[in-house]
Design a protein around this nucleic acid. Sequence first.
DNA 1: ACGGCCTATGAAAACGTTTTCATAAGCAGC
DNA 2: GCTGCTTATGAAAACGTTTTCATAGGCCGT
Lengths: 327, 327
Amino acid sequence: MAVGIRDVARAAGVSTATVSRALGKGPVSDALREQVEAAVRATGYRPNLSARRLRSQAAQTIGLIVADIRNPFFTAVSRAVEDAAYRAGMRLILCNTGEDAEREALYLRLMQEERVTGVVFAPTRRTAERLRPEDFPFPLVLIDRTGPPGGHDGVVLDNVAAGAALVDHLVEQGFSRISGLFGSTSSTAEERRDGYLSAMRRHGLAPQVRTVLPDAEPAQGEVARWLAGADRPEALVLSNGLILMGAVRAARAAGLAWPGGIALAGFDNEPWTDLVEPGLTVIEQPVAEIGAQAMDLLFDRLKNPDQPVRKVVLSGRLIARGSTARR
Amino acid sequence: MAVGIRDVARAAGVSTATVSRALGKGPVSDALREQVEAAVRATGYRPNLSARRLRSQAAQTIGLIVADIRNPFFTAVSRAVEDAAYRAGMRLILCNTGEDAEREALYLRLMQEERVTGVVFAPTRRTAERLRPEDFPFPLVLIDRTGPPGGHDGVVLDNVAAGAALVDHLVEQGFSRISGLFGSTSSTAEERRDGYLSAMRRHGLAPQVRTVLPDAEPAQGEVARWLAGADRPEALVLSNGLILMGAVRAARAAGLAWPGGIALAGFDNEPWTDLVEPGLTVIEQPVAEIGAQAMDLLFDRLKNPDQPVRKVVLSGRLIARGSTARR
DNA sequence: ACGGCCTATGAAAACGTTTTCATAAGCAGC
DNA sequence: GCTGCTTATGAAAACGTTTTCATAGGCCGT
């Protein structure tokens, strides 16, 4: 039934060591290599990766742990990471935490048990704070979100600048009662909020901030309540694509379609943001670059374990559309 | 450095067999089990899954191979599959083929080398045709797309009925020059086209069909050419969410916003389809059900390898929105 | 009190590879 | 023609578990 390397060796009339070498990169004469390849074809042999990994102590696997694969930001980053892994001849294990700290812990444990080569991780704030490098026998690269300084390599957006850029843009467009709704689980949302706050102060405006679970439904509910209240803002800054979607829904439901209703500015240039009229103003993130850089950091760290911790900060790009049109 | 079961055994003063049994479900006295657990905590032991899988010949892993993870249909199905796997104590390997037959073959080979417990697969038409059960030592369940009858278990939408339903709806709304744009890589797109064709015939209308790679950019280009030509249709049926998005873009670019421009009806009730004004008419697929059913079929097959091949056909639901409003 | 039968435990085999170590053969230099 | 060096090959160890097999001890029925 299960054909192993011994069967191939027998069929080729050589030892298992020779088969292993012929399939790998060991020194084998051309004649034998050909015999072995013929035997492999004849027997339909498929190597057993568990055995290979166990013996060679090289999993050739990298783990990718993201918060929510439905968020197009993460699917885009995933593709970049997958491509890089693929090019390096590594497999990818993709895990979804749903912003749940317990599942994060579970998956981190799983990575250790898989003896992975390295991990790319977008942690919740709570987990990021407890992340200690010495607990992990593999390189751990943080993306999108960051932990305590000096802990792990990471790739993040310049979130403070991006948050401020949205405020600057809204002010320039003539808005002043600008409020912000930010995700509650990530350092990234916090930084975007800080950017929002400092820009508001700089403009001499009164900030107003709320916080919500970073998903469309909770955001929609929160915005709906906000719009129904007495302190309805003129413009809203939303800290990610899912929250932005919730806000659009709430604005629609309240009959506050723009222009003239409420101005919206958010993050992530998702495919639908230019389709909903008259287009949503967003900060576009360099998603492919984020994934690629994360893998670069990871491979660098493998090559050179003792180099100082590096943090790559990338800039977003403001895409102004109709949702923030001048009043 | 690497702490193994031997270290735990030494720390607990027992044999490795006892440690293994204490950690698994073997019969161990309460006293020893406690000692072992203490030793595990003290040593920080993490089992090596490669070794475990090698010895126990049970990968406890299921593979999921989809065409395009950016397609929200597949991300939604993935989550259902992941949940089911998680509940069954299995890990998931997620692979992305990008509708490329070569990568499909690559990943199927990978699954064999990983000795996975089973695979859930959305194959291209070309691969589906060549899929022979005897080539796979594990259960293979097809989703969304189907192969030759009697080959593998599968879960699909009633695509013929769904394609026809869109035509019926458009006819009811007063349209008659209804054309169809269908994906070129899947049996599913073919079936939807068949449904379209038979419904058109039934209504005594002249069908007009084109075919395209199932992604937004190619679809946009094709629709743009179509709308610029002499035979511009009144209404379009689009065979999946990405193609639908391309069509919306092309219609926008051509200044043919509805109502009054071109009517659009497609597949997949993606989150953005009700946001783009005045809403897109779609067939909603029971995504969670599809994933869950696929895993049910897989586990049933594991339990009972010789039962007859089963195909589960689920019905879609028409969601009528403004994009097909009566002329 | 004794034989038989469970039950908990340990020693060692087994899982399918890769890698180490030893060896034989080939070849250059004298 | 012998020595020393390189190279291809095979035998066997090793990777870290689980599982089999043997054994010792306790308990039950007689």
